[in-house]
Design a protein around this nucleic acid. Structure first.
Length: 819
RNA sequence: GCCGGGGUGGCGGAACUGGUAGACGCGAAGGACUUAAAAUCCUUUGGCCCCAAACGGGCCGUGCGGGUUCAAGUCCCGCCCUCGGCACCA
């Protein structure tokens, strides 16, 4: 018989669907497993190889657990709001709602062909009012807790997309979506106070099973640093300048102070003679874009203000400069410059001939002037008054304490992370549920009036103003508080708000009375295994953690980390470049599904290499998997194949039967261990190796039907997570109860049977292999030694030499060290 | 510049805790079946060399250069390349 994958796959997809094999009883009290992939972005592209690479192996992992007896919940849904759909609409005139709906329909049918365990009754669509009603509710919950606020602040503006962006969406000064240089603009915008959770977000990382590099990225992004805020008086002016430093131990080495050009005191302190130059410089810097401003390779520039600050530790008068290398958005927007011990200050001081004073020497010697580079390590204090001779950590605390006592300093922790800017001047998103009233100010829309519906009929061409502002019917509304005419907020939310809680909604996608069902959420969350791309390390994955922590503190959920365990699949590139529509190098999976079947294709993706490494796409080798499945099909559909029910361990097995039994048990162990760790490639190699060994064994020797049946039964279950359609078919062919995923259990291996009877032992002379011996396992050192020395090739190399020592590693190797 | 991951045959990749490098698959070559092809099956396949030949033996070989060890793809030191992240965060 021929392996007719098309009809087999169609047949089983239909049966699974009709019998509702994968619909989960969420109230089942058995062991639950929530297995989640990052949901889909239906912007106009169909499913591509990258999606398959994310979803299919994850489905294999989920199926494996289902066979192990877990109650597995594996949902899928659509992250349907967002810029790409809107940009597509602008280009083609097709309304984003229409294009998105159509896309979801197409993608759903592609997904069904994949044959994953998705239960399409639990789909989520973030652009559906029944979903975004609750996105708005979450916004309001955060608002009520003071975690959402609106303020005027310098923000990142993308001139092409005509909207503001979050810090996380600016990559190297470019818009993450369209690579346009981002400009800084002061605008009134909505923020989530993620900075309030900086420490909790850091601490939580210690308790979750995530890739270390992802945790590291989050730690770096949060950027916690402990330091001291020091007050410098300004000569002849009332105001003081606060600087943040992590090196108060170098305070005696401060030879000037630098303000960011945007610092509010710049105008106040500048001396009249310097005003013209300062104004000109401030103007110049204001026109620099984000890349120019933050580039480390750019030479630092600055101008003096003519004013002087007083160093609180020694009363010394030092000049105040303004310079572009000081950022207004970090710390206090002002720094004390210690050129001898800070690279940036050193570079600046050299250029502008500012004094460089050594105040820390290495413990093993003195620095030599003039310095060639800043010495940034710790050491021993010099030129530092009564702190001289003390080691840096002591000086650090000593100076901090002394200043603190005099009210000149406070210990402080600063973070690199900024609040999450969530408002967007775009159409295709969830409206922000706030009304602006002249008498009452910001008024949250009452829960009973949610959702604030996104009107269909809107001119969405970008003008820099929110498209919703042009829709009078949307904008004009009675104030929910006083009833007077008021206006709705016209911005929409960043789609990362939508995606930071969708995993709660999956359990009850159509629930009308709440965002989620507490009982189900407390039973099923957190997500046990989350699989998705590493590119979300500091965006989605950080935002979702924040939202969950906020909901936790507000009493809505009983856990504070959403994803217990995280896996990143690697990226599949094409000719070395990331697949994207604009590069025109996207590979469509349909041709492979049609040509070889979903089972072959998913298995090929898993066989390519380590799951978290991805790699460059090539279909070379897909025939190997296809041949393998054909071989299995032949093995199971031949005439003499014993039925499922005939399984039996023979009372006195032949050698071949013992070997076959050992190998199937070794295979169970290997595949089980590999699957647990997402090592699909080596698991598949082991399956292949087994089939090779087993066919050879049974062609040369007699393997009785009882054992043959046993082996085929176990093997077919091992195959099921990888090639589920084929496995069902083979099971049915041999009279088994189907579906496999309802009737079968993952086999346990027989520990007493996996040990080899003989081992191959390497005999070395001076570390070079000279012979190989097959000996019974656990042979004694003496037995092995005497056997080894009878090997002719070994004797030849030992002849006339003295054996200095003999190293024996049991069951592995023997090495004669000679002279 | 800093922080991570990686570099193994013609290709994708395997290798436990330092113990047979190259599992498994692709490709290639030769053979069987066939009128022929496809499919399938069998054999060979890291490089170089010795031997009339062997299913005999030798040398070299995991990015480069050193080191530790009886033994190094694996550990240590110094580099090179590559991918990803961060990049004036005081």
């Amino acid at each position: 018989m021929k392996y007719d994958f098309t009809s087999i796959e169609q047949k089983w997809q239909k049966i699974w669907d009709q019998k509702k094999v994968y619909s989960v009883d969420l109230n089942d009290t058995g062991k639950k497993l929530y297995c989640l992939v990052m949901f889909l972005y239906p912007s106009g592209d169909k499913l591509h190889i990258g999606h398959w690479y994310n979803f299919a192996p994850t489905d294999t992992w989920a199926r494996f657990h289902r066979l192990k007896g877990y109650n597995v919940f594996e949902p899928i849904g659509y992250d349907a709001f967002g810029l790409p759909a809107e940009n597509y609409a602008i280009k083609t005139g097709v309304h984003p709602q229409d294009s998105t709906r159509k896309n979801i329909t197409d993608i759903r049918s592609q997904l069904k062909k994949m044959g994953a365990m998705y239960d399409f009754d639990y789909e989520v669509d973030t652009s559906d009012p029944e979903y975004y009603k609750w996105t708005q509710w979450i916004f309001l919950e955060l608002y009520k807790k003071g975690l959402a606020y609106r303020t005027n602040a310098p923000v990142n503006w993308c001139p092409k997309d005509q909207t503001v962006l979050a810090n996380e969406q600016v990559v190297d000064g470019l818009c993450e979506r369209c690579s346009t240089p981002v400009v800084r603009k002061a605008m009134t915008q909505w923020f989530f106070k993620i900075t309030a959770y900086a420490d909790k977000l850091l601490e939580g990382l210690d308790s979750i099973d995530w890739p270390e590099r992802t945790k590291l990225m989050q730690r770096n992004w949060i950027g916690r640093s402990e330091g001291v805020e020091i007050v410098f008086k300004v000569e002849n002016v009332e105001d003081t300048i606060k600087v943040f430093t992590t090196r108060p131990d170098t305070l005696f080495g401060a030879t000037y102070v630098v303000l960011a050009p945007e610092h509010p005191l710049v105008q106040k302190v500048t001396k009249p003679a310097f005003k013209a130059a300062v104004d000109e410089y401030v103007e110049l810097v204001a026109h620099e874009n984000e890349i120019e401003r933050t580039s480390t390779s750019k030479e630092k520039t600055g101008v003096p203000t003519g004013a002087f600050a007083i160093n609180p530790i020694n009363g010394e008068k030092i000049p105040i400069w303004i310079a572009d290398y000081v950022l207004s958005t970090y710390g206090t927007g002002a720094v004390m410059a210690v050129p001898a011990h800070d690279e940036r200050d050193f570079e600046f001081a050299q250029k502008y001939k500012l004094p460089i004073r050594i105040v820390v020497n290495p413990t093993d010697g003195n620095l030599v002037e003039p310095l060639k580079a800043a010495y940034v390590e710790e050491g021993v204090a010099v030129n530092s008054g009564h702190f001289n001779g003390l080691e840096s950590p002591k000086v650090w605390d000593g100076i901090a304490d002394e200043l603190q006592k005099n009210g000149d300093a406070t210990r402080k922790v600063n973070y690199r992370i900024r609040d999450w800017l969530l408002s967007r001047q775009r159409y295709w998103g969830a409206p922000i549920p706030i009304v602006h009233c002249d008498s009452c100010g910001e008024v949250p829309v009452p829960d009973k009036d949610l959702p604030v519906l996104l009107p269909y009929d809107v001119e969405f061409k970008p003008t820099g103003e929110s498209p919703l502002a042009r829709n009078d019917a949307f904008v004009n509304v009675a104030c929910p508080k006083c009833g007077k005419p008021a206006k709705r907020d016209v911005d929409t939310m960043d789609t990362f708000v939508d995606s930071s809680w969708y995993f709660l909604r999956y359990l009850t996608p159509h629930l009308g009375t709440a965002a989620f069902d507490d009982k189900l959420v407390s039973r099923w969350l957190p997500v046990d295994k989350y699989v998705g791309g590493a590119e979300h390390a500091v965006m989605h994955l950080l935002y979702a953690r924040f939202v969950i922590k906020a909901l936790h503190d507000a009493g809505w959920v009983n856990f504070d980390e959403p994803f217990t365990s995280l896996v990143h699949q690697g990226i599949i590139t094409n000719q070395g470049a990331k697949m994207s529509k604009s590069r025109g190098n996207v590979v469509n999976p349909d041709q492979f599904v049609n040509g070889y079947g979903a089972d072959t294709f998913r298995m090929f993706l898993m066989f390519m290499g380590p799951y978290n490494e991805g790699g460059d796409w090539s279909d070379r080798g897909i025939t190997g998997i296809f041949r393998f499945l054909n071989k299995i099909y032949d093995l199971y559909s031949s005439e003499e194949v014993p039925p499922i029910a005939g399984e039996k361990t023979p009372p006195s097995p032949s050698d071949a039967e013992r070997t076959a039994y050992r190998k199937i048990n070794q295979l169970i162990k290997k595949v089980t261990e590999d699957l647990e760790q997402f090592r699909f490639n080596t698991a598949i190699a082991a399956l292949m190796e087994f089939v090779n060994d087993f066919t050879q064994l049974s062609s040369e020797n007699e393997i009785g039907p009882g054992l043959r049946s046993l082996v085929l039964n176990r093997f077919n279950v091992l195959l099921a997570p990888f090639a589920p359609h084929l496995s069902e078919e083979l099971h049915e062919l041999r009279g088994g109860e189907v579906p496999v995923f309802s009737s079968s259990r993952w086999p346990e291996y027989d520990a007493s049977a996996i040990t080899e009877e003989n081992v191959t032992l390497v005999v070395q002379v001076n570390g070079k292999v000279r012979a190989k011996l097959t000996v019974p396992i656990d042979s004694t050192d003496e037995a092995v030694k005497s056997l080894a020395s009878t090997e002719p090739n070994v004797q030849r190399h030992l002849e006339g030499k003295t054996i200095l020592k003999t190293i024996v590693v049991q069951n592995r190797l023997l090495n004669f060290v000679i002279k």
